[in-house]
Simulated scan of single mutants.
Amino acid sequence: MDVRELQVTFDCADPHGLAGFWCEAIGYACDAPPPGFDTWDAALDAFGVPPDQRNGRSACHDPTGAGPRLFFQVVPEGKTAKNRLHLDVRAAPGLRGEERMAALEAEGKRLVALGAARVQRHEPAPPLSHGFLVMADPEGNEFCLD
């Protein structure tokens, strides 16, 4: 069987804003406009998309090509329950103990300044858990700093 590309899709209220958050959070870049256009606004003008309908979707990608593309689409309903699937942002790989937790706390503070919320801290419980932070993005989608 061939390996398939993976895209992670977020249902949200503000695709452009949430894409911007995740770009800053994990070092991704927003997708470039289609060939022949310098900006997305120029492309959307040419496609006849009214200004009030230009935040229906957004996407970003790993500039190295290693990670999956993230796609954000507007949906009419808000988030109502805990995610069944979440992202783990590897903010302290290889670190253990207080050094690990300090690195996670520092990254958590950076993400809170970008609009995330801190949800819970899980202390190290070796051998299976080295500790992690549960966070929520600006629209309440849970993710972990691991």
Rank of each mutant, 00 (worst) to 15 (best):
W22N: 11
W22Y: 10
C23M: 09
C23G: 04
E24C: 13
E24Q: 15
E24I: 06
G27E: 09
Y28M: 07
Y28H: 05
A29D: 09
A29R: 10
C30Y: 03
D31K: 08
A32K: 09
P33T: 08
P34Y: 06
G36F: 05
G36V: 05
F37R: 08
T39V: 05
D41W: 00
D41M: 01
A42Y: 08
A43S: 12
D45A: 01
A46L: 08
A46W: 03
G48M: 04
G48N: 02
Q53P: 00
Q53V: 02
Q53D: 11
G56E: 15
R57I: 04
S58E: 15
S58H: 10
A59G: 14
A59D: 05
H61F: 12
H61L: 15
D62I: 14
P63M: 11
P63C: 12
P63A: 12
G65I: 04
G65R: 03
G65F: 02
G67V: 07
P68H: 04
F72W: 02
V74I: 13
V74W: 00
P76M: 05
T80H: 08
N83F: 05
N83V: 07
R84D: 08
L85V: 06
L85R: 07
H86M: 03
H86W: 04
H86A: 03
D88E: 08
D88S: 08
A91G: 06
R96F: 07
R96N: 07
R96E: 09
E99Y: 04
M101Q: 08
L104A: 03
E105N: 13
A106R: 13
E107S: 12
G108F: 03
G108C: 13
L111M: 14
V112N: 03
A113N: 12
L114M: 15
G115E: 14
A116G: 05
A116W: 00
A117G: 13
A117T: 10
R118Q: 14
Q120T: 11
R121I: 07
H122Y: 14
E123T: 10
E123C: 09
A125L: 09
A125M: 11
